[in-house]
Computed example of a mutant assay.
Amino acid sequence: MTLLEHELAESRYYRDHPGATYQEAHAAANEMSNWQRQIPDPTFEDFAEPWG
């Protein structure tokens, strides 16, 4: 959900600021929804092994 909120914020920034750069839109979106801070640590599941 956080990533989707971030992308929506970027989209709205582009709409409201014609000619904005990606860096500007990304920074503004991070103020509202910084998805990168919420990335979980890897769990290293092995999906090649059968479930027990």
Rank of each mutant, 00 (worst) to 15 (best):
M1V: 14
M1Y: 14
M1I: 12
M1L: 12
M1G: 15
M1K: 15
M1F: 12
T2Q: 15
T2W: 11
T2P: 06
T2S: 14
T2A: 14
L3V: 12
L3P: 03
L3F: 14
L4H: 13
L4F: 11
E5V: 06
E5C: 03
E5Q: 12
E5I: 08
E5G: 03
H6I: 10
H6W: 14
E7G: 03
E7Y: 09
E7M: 13
E7N: 14
E7D: 06
L8D: 13
L8T: 11
L8I: 13
E10C: 12
S11I: 05
S11C: 10
R12M: 01
R12V: 01
R12L: 06
Y14V: 02
R15M: 04
R15S: 05
R15D: 05
R15V: 07
R15G: 00
R15T: 08
D16S: 08
D16I: 01
D16C: 02
D16W: 01
H17G: 07
H17P: 03
H17V: 09
P18G: 09
P18V: 05
G19N: 06
G19Y: 06
G19T: 07
A20E: 00
A20H: 01
A20I: 04
A20T: 02
T21E: 06
T21Q: 07
T21V: 07
T21K: 12
T21L: 10
Y22C: 06
Y22R: 13
Y22V: 07
Y22F: 13
Q23E: 14
Q23A: 15
Q23K: 09
E24T: 02
A25N: 05
A25T: 04
H26Q: 01
H26E: 01
A27M: 12
A27K: 14
A27F: 09
A27G: 08
A27Y: 12
A29Q: 08
N30S: 00
N30D: 01
M32T: 14
S33T: 10
S33D: 10
S33F: 12
S33H: 13
N34R: 06
N34W: 03
N34D: 12
N34K: 04
W35Y: 15
W35M: 07
W35T: 07
W35A: 15
Q36I: 03
Q36E: 11
R37A: 11
R37Q: 10
R37D: 13
R37H: 08
Q38H: 06
I39M: 08
I39L: 11
I39C: 05
I39P: 01
I39Y: 02
P40N: 07
P40W: 05
P40I: 04
D41A: 15
D41L: 15
D41V: 13
D41G: 14
D41C: 10
P42T: 05
P42H: 03
P42F: 04
P42M: 06
T43F: 10
T43R: 13
T43M: 09
F44E: 04
F44G: 00
F44N: 05
F44S: 07
E45F: 11
D46F: 00
D46Q: 00
D46C: 00
F47H: 09
F47P: 00
F47E: 04
A48M: 10
E49G: 02
P50I: 09
P50E: 11
P50V: 10
P50L: 10
P50Y: 06
W51K: 04
W51Y: 03
G52Q: 00
G52T: 00
